[in-house]
Nucleic acid binder design. Structure first.
Length: 265
DNA sequence: ATGCCGTATCTAATACGA
């Protein structure tokens, strides 16, 4: 039996419980990493999630913004979290599975509207966050181990990761500066970009369609902001990858859709 | 025209997303 690991920015967990139930029933991930849970830990709907078949439910959230969770079908060996950019803003959580795989769940800052760190503190924060991830990924305890990094990284690095490359080059999430940081992250951890391992870069691949323009999904004006990266030790074990695009057509959807990978371990 | 929405919060107007 392969191990199935999925990631989904749900844009409010409590608003998306029905969708979560439908997705877990249909796709049966063994490990599901969530971002933008937007719920403080004391309000986390732990019983609802356990009734979906998840024995181990870890969460690290706050009121209104950010927040991450990891749902595991079975037991785990350990879990941890790390503070990034000296901010206690609930953007990371990790578990070590009994088979030794580390699963790291990230919600990278979106970066605000203007791609200039001098004018926009949120963009400066995003750049610092990605720099910290690069330094972390280069540590032997990550690079040399069996590590899966997933989450909403808020960068669409390749030309075919956005619906209009030329038009969006100066938009936060697709600037050359951010794409360069993603390339450095990949190199630092010796990571395989799992999405692009299975879907060649010639082919458009998206995981997010904005709410603001009502026809964004109908017209396929998408971005690939959600990612799965796997270290070299796991590369031979990658068996299947999927973007579960149909969740975006459900009633009152998240603006992001799930990505999942199967590993034969 | 991703300027047009969705979610959360001190339930009213604002912050935030990317």
């Amino acid at each position: 039996m392969p191990t199935r690991i999925a990631t989904w920015n749900v844009n409010s967990l409590r608003q998306r419980l029905e969708h979560l139930k439908a997705f877990t029933d249909s796709h049966q991930p063994d490990v599901l990493c969530l971002q933008e849970t937007k719920v403080q830990d004391s309000e986390f709907p732990e019983d609802d999630i356990k009734s979906m078949g998840y024995e181990t439910v870890l969460f690290h959230g706050q009121k209104s913004y950010n927040g991450v969770a990891i749902l595991c079908r079975n037991s785990i060996s350990s879990s941890n979290r790390k503070v990034w950019c000296d901010k206690d803003d609930r953007r990371h959580l990790m578990v070590t599975l009994p088979n030794g795989i580390q699963v790291h769940n990230f919600y990278v800052p979106s970066g605000g509207p203007v791609p200039d760190p001098e004018q926009n503190d949120k963009f400066a924060h995003k750049l610092s966050f990605l720099e910290e991830m690069i330094a972390w990924a280069a540590e032997p305890s990550i690079r040399k181990e069996k590590v899966i990094l997933v989450g909403d990284l808020n960068v669409a690095p390749l030309e075919t990761d956005v619906w209009n490359h030329k038009k969006l080059l100066k938009s936060v999430g697709h600037t050359p500066q951010e794409s360069g940081l993603m390339a450095r992250l990949k190199a630092a951890g010796d990571f395989t970009d799992v999405g692009r391992h299975f879907v060649p870069p010639e082919q458009p691949l998206y995981s997010w369609w904005g709410y603001r323009y009502k026809l964004s999904f109908a017209k396929d004006y998408g971005w690939r902001l959600d990612h799965i990266l796997a270290t070299e030790a796991l590369r031979p074990h990658l068996k299947h990858f999927e973007v579960v695009k149909d969740t975006r057509s459900w009633e009152k959807p998240s603006d992001h859709v799930p990505n999942l990978v199967d590993l034969d371990l």
